[in-house]
Each structure stands twice: as structure tokens, then as C-alpha cells.
Design a protein around this nucleic acid. Structure first.
Lengths: 192, 192
DNA sequence: TTATATATAGACCAATCGTTATAATTTGGA
DNA sequence: TCCAAATTATAACGATTGGTCTATATATAA
């Protein structure tokens, strides 16, 4: 395994597993098994250990999702349509693996919730990532003529709504909740 | 420690810790320390072990929160007002302990998210609890003249929105997100 | 080709984990 | 008061955890 691949493969495996199962329920041995990398390499490439791996996984995932967000917000001029298509995209990403619903890039809800009280470094990383997504939403809404105040309120709520409905979707083992919140977007964006 | 107290104290401690830190980041030794109960008693009273403890904690917490929901939904005839007051109540429950924001009865977001893929029994318990809360919301909305379809869509979204904003509030260490979603309730409930 | 830096590989570590086992103590009822 | 059942108390268990360590292999530069 080449040096570039090893680090990358570990980060990919970690990203997937942390987002799926959370930080505490994912062991480094599991990440190594999935990535095929040797244990010594993990601490060589990530001297900060499991926590550094998680922080980088959050950032990587945050960037990927920001890319998705940009694509959808840029593609549609109308804010309602843009947000609805984004949510439709997320809902469409769910796939069934071994009978379980699984999301390749899971939003941050789980990691944020589980680290909020027990890991300050990761809490901050999550906060920054949410903040990055939120500014993308604010930018789009301002562009569409929403007041500064309104853009902020809607954007925070949009983050909450999407994270919450992903959790609900995973709990219920159906992407139904995401499809349902999509129907409410017109009402949510009705006041400027 | 009397027999009734022992079981109860363990369940209380478990409820608080599981909801605050999640299932996987809470150890049974920690629960025992906080409750003052001896280890043998834990397995005596909860023969299903940690998992049974968590399931009962979810149910207990779900009932307590259902009580809060009922109080607020019954107190106000107007749906917008009822939901806003409920959210205000949740936001008002945050308190600062050792500089960290802490919620005595935390909604289910964390437990639901972390168990969805790794513990079927707890996933089901979470699903049932969400379902119970959701029917309270549906009932109120139907009473207020919303269509069956609309009541369902709004209720699912309300669960998602509250869970998501609690996560955001804990991540950001401020109840600001909850206060922000409260402002959007009129828009959210604007279509019947 | 050789020397040096980088990365791998896997054994080992102490601590923690959830659970079990068993003896002792307490409680409740006759 | 006595006895059986309930509960407590605590040591021990096997498994897993994240991390350390050291020898070796590979990559790079001269």
C-alpha cells in the first residue's frame, strides 16, 4: 500500500464509520480492518490518534456536503426549489445495504450530539462545520431578497430540520421523514 | 439503600447520563457511581444489563417529555401559540453547569442517532417514543382544523426540527437555535 | 549504489468495558 | 423468632480499547 493511499484509505473508512456509528461506537481496530492499513500507520499519519482522525473526518465530510449544497443552491434561482432539490438529493442518497438504510455521507447530527458534552475539540469542529453550511444557506437567501434577520433564522432552522429528519429517517428505517420536510419548504420560506 | 430506591436511582442516573452523553460513551460504572448503587444490584434489577437500562431510560424520558408536551398543547387553544410555548419551555430548561449548557431531560436525538445502525432493540424503542410524541402533535393539529395529511407532515417536521435544534444548541453551547426555530412556527403552521 | 527519511507491521501494554459468580446481608411474612 | 426470598456487595472474568514501541520495509535523494 503506497503512502498516499494508506492515509487516505484510513480517513475514508473513518469518515464512513464515524458518521454511521458515531465516535464512541467506532473502534480504531474497526477502521483499520475496513481500510486495510496497519496500526502503526494510523498513529504515524495521525499522531493525535482517534480524535484527530475524527476531526479530519468531520472536516472532510463537511466539505463534501458543502459541495453538494453549493451545486443545488447554484443550480436553481428560486430558493424554495433549491432547498427542495437539495433535500430530495439527500433523501435519494439513502440506499439499502443488508436490509438497513445507509447514507454514504451522513450529516453531522450524530457526531455533533455525542461530542457536545464530552469532547471539546470535536464539538468545536462540528460547530465550525455547521457554521460553514449555514453561511451557504444565508448567502442564497440574501441573494433571493430575504432580510438579513430572516435569512439567519431560516438557515439555522434548515440545518436543524435536515439533521433532525436524517436522524428520524435512520430511526424509522425509511427516508419518509426527509420527503415530508421537503413538502414544508414553501411554507418555511414564505416570509421574507 | 432500600430496594425501591436502588432501582429507581439507577434508572434516574442512567436516564440523565445516556441522554447527555449517549449510550456508548456512558459506562455502567459511571451510572453506579452517580446513583450510589452496588454493581450486583444493577444486574439483579436489570437482568438485560446496560441495554435494558437504556431502553427503560428512553421510555421514562419519553413519558416525561410527553407530559410536558401535553401540558403545553392543552394549555393553549391556538396551535401556533401552543408549539411556540412548548419550544420556549424546552429552551428555558437549558441551564449552565460548570460552564456547559445542560438539559435535564434531553430529547432523543443522540440516542436515536447512535443506536439506529447498531442496536435494533434500542432503535425500536426510540422509534416508538418518537411515534408517541408525534401522535400528540397530530392530535392537536387535527383539533385545530388541519387536514390529516397536513397534520402528519407538520408533526414529523416538528419532531425533526426540535431534535435538530437541540443538537445545534448543545453544539453551539447556546439555546439560540431553539429560540430561532420558535420564530418560524407561524410560517410552518401557515397552511392547513 | 548508498544513505537517509518515511512509512509499515505487528506485538505488546495498561486500562476499561459489561457481565458473571458467589457469599453476605437485609427484608418480609408466617 | 425463624426461614426463605430478595437484595446487596465485591472480586473476578474475558474481551476490547486506544495507544506505544521497535524492528523492518520502502521511498527518496544524492
Amino acid at each position: 500500500m503506497s503512502k498516499v493511499q494508506s492515509r487516505e484509505k484510513m480517513l475514508e473508512a473513518a469518515t464512513r464509520l464515524f458518521h454511521l456509528k458515531g465516535y464512541h461506537a467506532t473502534g480504531v481496530n474497526q477502521i483499520l480492518q475496513e481500510s486495510g492499513a496497519p496500526k502503526g500507520s494510523l498513529y504515524y499519519h495521525f499522531p493525535g490518534g482517534k480524535e484527530q482522525l475524527a476531526a479530519e473526518a468531520i472536516q472532510l465530510s463537511g466539505q463534501l456536503i458543502a459541495g453538494d449544497i453549493r451545486v443545488h443552491l447554484d443550480k436553481y434561482e428560486d430558493a424554495v426549489q433549491a432547498f427542495q432539490q437539495l433535500i430530495q438529493f439527500i433523501a435519494g442518497q439513502f440506499e439499502r445495504i443488508d436490509g438497513l438504510l445507509e447514507l454514504p455521507t451522513v450529516p453531522l447530527g450524530l457526531l455533533a450530539a455525542e461530542t457536545a458534552q464530552v469532547n471539546e475539540h470535536l464539538r468545536q469542529t462540528c460547530e465550525e462545520t455547521f457554521g460553514m453550511w449555514e453561511s451557504l444557506y444565508i448567502g442564497k437567501l440574501l441573494q433571493c431578497g430575504y432580510s438579513d434577520e430572516r435569512a439567519r433564522v431560516i438557515s439555522t432552522s434548515m440545518i436543524a430540520l435536515i439533521e433532525g429528519s436524517v436522524t428520524l429517517s435512520l430511526t424509522r428505517n425509511t427516508n419518509g421523514p426527509l420527503l415530508q420536510i421537503r413538502e414544508l419548504i414553501p411554507a418555511l420560506l414564505s416570509m421574507k
